[in-house]
Design a protein around this nucleic acid. Structure first.
Lengths: 189, 189
DNA sequence: AATATAAACGGAGTCGGCTCCACTTGTCAA
DNA sequence: TTGACAAGTGGAGCCGACTCCGTTTATATT
């Protein structure tokens, strides 16, 4: 990779982060980002095939931070299995709310999501949820556990928001419902 | 409503259905539809605020057909509860595959989805799944049952496709995983 | 039938995502 | 150092979703 190309990549990311901080993601156009980075639209698009991909790259660090935070928490906690599940879920929901717009933009991009699902980071995310689901679920084959973690992440996507839309379903209700669903009686903690 | 306005509404729907049959939904532009219907873009957009809304209207009849079909099946079946659950889910997945493109377009429109969730039709859809989930789940409060039905629908949305992306998860696997999750031992059938 | 008017029309125009390609520049071999 | 060329650039331009508004028309009233 040429040195100037690397510099441009950095400039894009910095510009995008700044713009996304000062305006809503939707109202920031790709042209705005290119201009702020001091480059042309063509260059922007050679680095990122579409807006969703750029949003994903901007968010990567935050997603990784969530995963790391969850690992730290799980490494040192003495909470019950249920409390761990609820704790991790709560943090995930908080993270999602903080990055609502970026995540919505990412999740609307079908091709971007397809590659994201293949990524190591997404597998780490799944692994975190598998870890907290495992003690709740009795003895489950690994594939089944993975399925449940995957399902959880799918239903919490921004375009779903089962719990937000269903008027009057609070986060506490969501947690309670999910716990009840995932817990096999007699096997927790 | 003026008579000519009603006629235009009909023409739009007919034109849209025809075009969606002969090309992919994505490649049909709103202008194409307007032209085929013999009206201007302005008129099209007065009837449907966006493409997603039009796609939803085109799909309404199919969704209703699925609901009716499921009701008919449930009214006359003697299958076990598990078989009923799998039967209804299978038909739903088949319906979704048949209308993949339309549903994807609908589900990408956040505002359209928000109103769809409020609609009677969506409530009917939820009710169908509540009906097949109920005998699997032991005694659940109505709210909890509704939550699970909602969750199911959310995870099966086109932009999720948990099962398709997770390479090598067949429809049979999906059914098996969901059954295992939803069945409370000792209460099925 | 004539008229007033609200309802509806349609197409020119805006805006944003994205592409294409003629041009520039960093790099490396000689 | 210089020349060749792959790598990279940037902006004009396309296309499609969606809006705005001056014009037309159905219909209710007289």
């Amino acid at each position: 990779m040429r040195k100037d190309a690397q510099q441009n990549r950095d400039k894009i990311l910095t510009a995008a982060v700044h713009l996304f901080e000062s305006q809503s993601v939707e109202t920031v156009s790709m042209k705005d980002i290119a201009t702020a980075a001091g480059i042309g639209p063509g260059t922007l698009y050679r680095n990122y095939p579409n807006k969703s991909a750029l949003c994903l790259d901007v968010s990567l660090v935050d997603i990784q931070a969530f995963v790391d935070d969850a690992h730290d928490y799980l490494a040192q906690t003495t909470d019950t299995a249920i409390a761990q599940f609820e704790q991790v879920l709560t943090r995930y929901l908080q993270f999602r709310e903080r990055r609502l717009q970026l995540l919505a933009s990412i999740e609307n991009g079908a091709t971007v999501m397809a590659t994201y699902y293949q990524s190591d980071l997404y597998q780490q995310l799944v692994a975190v949820f598998m870890q907290v689901l495992k003690p709740l679920s009795g003895d489950l084959k690994i594939g089944e556990l993975k399925f449940r973690a995957d399902m959880l992440l799918a239903m919490l996507k921004s375009n779903s928001y089962a719990y937000q839309r269903q008027q009057g379903l609070t986060r506490a209700d969501l947690l309670a419902n999910l716990s009840r669903l995932m817990i096999k009686k007699g096997t927790q903690n």
